[in-house]
Computed example of a mutant assay.
Amino acid sequence: MRGLLGVAALVLAVGSEAGAADVYGPEQTVDAFHAALAMGDTKAVAALLTDKAVIFEEGGVERTKAEYSAHHLPADAAFAKVVRMSTARRFGDHGSGLAWVASEGRMKGSYKGKRIDRLTTETMVLQETSAGWKIVHIHWSSAEAPKHAIPAD
């Protein structure tokens, strides 16, 4: 619970443009992105993206923050508010002002009357800026969870 409160505080700070590079690192930025998405705070989500952010999802692409914000971001936020996401593994590295964070997880719940149970992979590339770590690229992929998959927490 304490970690969730910290991420929520970070989301509020980012939403009010108070976050600084010294406050959080790449993994915390990824956590803040997901927390803002789950809260439906599209302004905080957008604040964590560079203007030239590129988002790959299931074979589609949005080439800027403005394009993502105008198209898939509202639907992604609505989805994240009702479908539970869990992270099973995370790893990454950073240096010279760039970082990458790769996550494996699961999404489970229902959305618009449809049952959701999918294994997920995510890669985020981040750049260190004067305003903190910002996401420059997201690559999301998922597949239907096999019947024998370990249940989400």
Rank of each mutant, 00 (worst) to 15 (best):
G3T: 11
L5T: 05
V7M: 08
A9L: 13
A9Q: 13
L12K: 13
A13W: 07
V14G: 00
V14M: 05
G15H: 02
E17P: 01
A18R: 14
G19P: 09
A20K: 12
D22G: 05
D22T: 14
D22I: 03
D22H: 11
D22L: 10
Y24S: 05
V30Y: 05
V30S: 05
D31C: 05
F33A: 03
F33L: 10
F33W: 06
A35G: 14
A36P: 11
D41C: 00
D41T: 04
D41A: 03
K43Y: 10
A46C: 07
A47I: 05
L48D: 07
T50D: 09
E57F: 15
E58Y: 11
V61A: 11
R63D: 07
R63K: 09
T64V: 03
A66N: 06
E67K: 10
Y68C: 01
H72K: 14
H72M: 12
P74Q: 01
A75R: 06
A77N: 00
A77T: 00
A80R: 00
V82F: 01
V83H: 01
R84A: 04
R84E: 07
M85T: 04
S86G: 08
H94C: 11
H94L: 15
S96T: 11
S96V: 10
G97M: 07
L98D: 03
A99Q: 12
W100G: 01
S103N: 09
E104M: 00
G105H: 03
M107K: 08
S110Q: 14
S110R: 11
Y111H: 12
Y111P: 04
K114P: 03
D117L: 00
R118Q: 15
E122N: 06
E122D: 08
M124V: 14
L126E: 12
S130F: 01
A131V: 10
K134H: 14
I135C: 03
I135P: 08
V136L: 14
V136T: 15
I138V: 14
W140F: 15
S141R: 11
S142G: 10
S142M: 08
A143W: 13
K147P: 08
K147V: 15
K147R: 08
H148I: 12
H148Q: 14
I150Y: 02
P151S: 12
D153N: 09
